[in-house]
Computed example of a mutant assay.
Amino acid sequence: MTDSAKPKVRAADKRRRLTAAAAQVLHEQGVERTTLADIARAADVPLGNVYYYYKTKDELVRAALSEHSTHLDELTHSLDELPDPRDRLKALIEVWISSRDVAARYGCPTGTLAVELDKRGDGTLDTEAGAVIQRLVDWTGHQFRALGLPAPDDLAITLVAAYQGMSLLANALRDPSIMTREGTRLLRWLDSLNAPDPTPSRTPL
């Protein structure tokens, strides 16, 4: 690596660390309680450097949403490697169950952020948070469609809504077992869904 390239690499690393720290700290503390100093501390970056990359807290919130979107894309891309759509959906639910302790402590990263941003009423960042959730709904709907199930988009809403609900309850009650119980119920629900028989019925003579 040339000497001239090193500053660019260091700058990219700082931005990446700040973005990851923003996603984590905003999830744990919420937008209102989080300061730029909190994020700088979590990223191990001098506070003065934060302003070089992000002028306002809103810019860091947008960066955190981008981090959530990237994480979702990485997750769904890895799930897409599974050959069966039902197995992809089951693996998604298993990921949700495995995050039960975090969900019980802080709730869903994107869902809680979307709710908090909506309270501000400015109609910008909350819309971007909703777009991340919509990406999950769209991917989930694609899996149900690949299974040949009727009303795949409705099934996707049912599944994602169940996730948001169990995350909310686990957080409100500080009970990670809710994620396990409800996740197990969703796995059974997936197994119960069957595509309609494509063979036309014959009327007996």
Rank of each mutant, 00 (worst) to 15 (best):
T70F: 09
S99K: 15
L72A: 12
S192M: 08
M166H: 11
L169K: 15
L186T: 07
N194D: 15
V95Q: 13
N171R: 15
R41G: 02
N194V: 11
C108W: 04
V25R: 00
M179L: 14
E81P: 08
S78P: 06
T112E: 15
A42M: 00
E67L: 01
A43K: 00
K55I: 00
Y54C: 00
P109E: 06
K119T: 07
L117A: 08
P83R: 05
S167A: 15
T124E: 14
E32Q: 05
Y163H: 15
E28H: 03
S167F: 12
A103T: 06
A21P: 09
R86K: 10
Y163F: 15
T56P: 12
E116R: 05
D73A: 09
T70D: 09
L75K: 15
W96L: 05
D3P: 12
L168C: 07
V61Q: 05
V137E: 13
H77T: 05
L36H: 05
D118H: 14
L26Y: 01
A114T: 11
T112I: 05
L187A: 13
S98H: 04
A131M: 10
G30I: 01
V61G: 06
E67T: 04
R62S: 15
R33M: 08
A161W: 13
A37W: 01
R15A: 02
D58C: 02
S69N: 14
E81D: 08
L168E: 12
H71E: 11
R135A: 14
R17L: 02
D87N: 12
D84L: 10
H142N: 07
S201Q: 04
Q134E: 13
G30V: 01
K57S: 04
E182L: 07
P150G: 03
D122Y: 08
G123Q: 10
T35F: 05
D191A: 09
L82N: 11
P85N: 02
L190G: 14
L159M: 06
